[in-house]
Design a protein around this nucleic acid. Sequence first.
DNA 1: AATAAAATGTTGCAATTGCAACATTTTTTT
DNA 2: AAAAAAATGTTGCAATTGCAACATTTTATT
Lengths: 232, 232
Amino acid sequence: MLQLQHFFDKLKVEKQGGNKMLENIAILKDFTESEKKNLFNTLLSKPNYFTKNAMIAYSLNNTDLIGIIIQGEGQILRYDYNGSRTVIDTLKPGSIFSNLFLSTYNSEVIVTAITDCEVIFFSYEELKERCQKGSPIANHFLINLFQIVINQNVNQSERIELLTKRSIRDKLLTYFNYLSRKYSSKSFDLNTSYTLLADYLAVDRSALMRELKHLKEEGFIKEVNKRITLIS
Amino acid sequence: MLQLQHFFDKLKVEKQGGNKMLENIAILKDFTESEKKNLFNTLLSKPNYFTKNAMIAYSLNNTDLIGIIIQGEGQILRYDYNGSRTVIDTLKPGSIFSNLFLSTYNSEVIVTAITDCEVIFFSYEELKERCQKGSPIANHFLINLFQIVINQNVNQSERIELLTKRSIRDKLLTYFNYLSRKYSSKSFDLNTSYTLLADYLAVDRSALMRELKHLKEEGFIKEVNKRITLIS
DNA sequence: AATAAAATGTTGCAATTGCAACATTTTTTT
DNA sequence: AAAAAAATGTTGCAATTGCAACATTTTATT
């Protein structure tokens, strides 16, 4: 008990933080304050607080709960048939996670807090029931949820597009072209670390650095301080 | 016109086919006959027929239409920054496709018929409106749609898991372990061609064959006629 | 039944990549 | 301000992979 109290003392997230932090939570988009209050009194669980490195969920199997990160960051990790650990996803405020979105045939999947964080849960079955009873609030909530899942889908499609490229060079050029289109400019900042980019593209980091150097030497790109310029 | 008539003559799909073919369409799951009739009179478009190799949709951009394959097969293709063509997805009866699920930053994406097929469209905005007006049928339809998108999500996650493996050996073993869990057996049939499997894992087909041979030689697996047995 | 098309299986070779092992710089934590 | 941790940058080397180019078998089409 004392131990637990100690954890709570260290929590960096505000337990009674105002509603400002709820502003950026996609699933609560376009709800009035009173509608939010209604949601918190019915569908949504009380806030759950987790300290850094704590386990948020273990073997989500056999529940239909969907978690929403309100504050802090988490990670979804998978432990493989051979014991290797990989990061499936990084969770930021507004991210959702659930067993519903994971393969039933997956190996062990756990969700952990990488910083102190606040999480809310709700039951998907309960949401469906409320929708079928005609609740406009539940309906709106479902449509917001759907939008999040669609966005996840789009992000996964983009990553698959990159991962199916056969060489690091092609992965990088495809990724850079994508960013160039996104920002409508031949120049753009990579706002990620090379370490994370290598993970994202599923290649060895040192091999990525090497290929980047080659692309510069051969005049395909310029790069200064993580700012890339496509040439051609 | 004659030309067009000629196309229709060749159509392999039944234009007035009974409702049997609608049985397996996931988005129509658990609707009564009269509810289906209602959907076909309101939200859903008339059936569209496409002949083999015809273009079903080109640059889906700027519409919110979602297509449902009723009969036949299609493919979603992407043309890259360097002109290379890749298959994003193969569409079977019950599959859906829409610009909503694709990155806005993608290069040209087109949908084509690989056999004669029948397709129905609906507007996502219209579906949302009907839901918000409290239509139970629209609501049920949205939940079915959501389930399909969740399944796509799960499938994409599985593929990403495989694609992030660094070697062909690891990809194959992870895939085989997945099938083994799925069928709860050390032995299972690969019901796909090696050509397609190599595409799915984004590796060279001949390299895949070679690695498969090595796995057999080294005693990790047995393989007879596309039936794999895991040894350990 | 004949022909065409697709899938399977194999191999040599060159190019790419992962891995290991560093030094150096930047960022974070104490 | 010092120490620790994380990220960047580099290189040699061996292993893996893609590619090209076949022969053979199976499946689909006419």
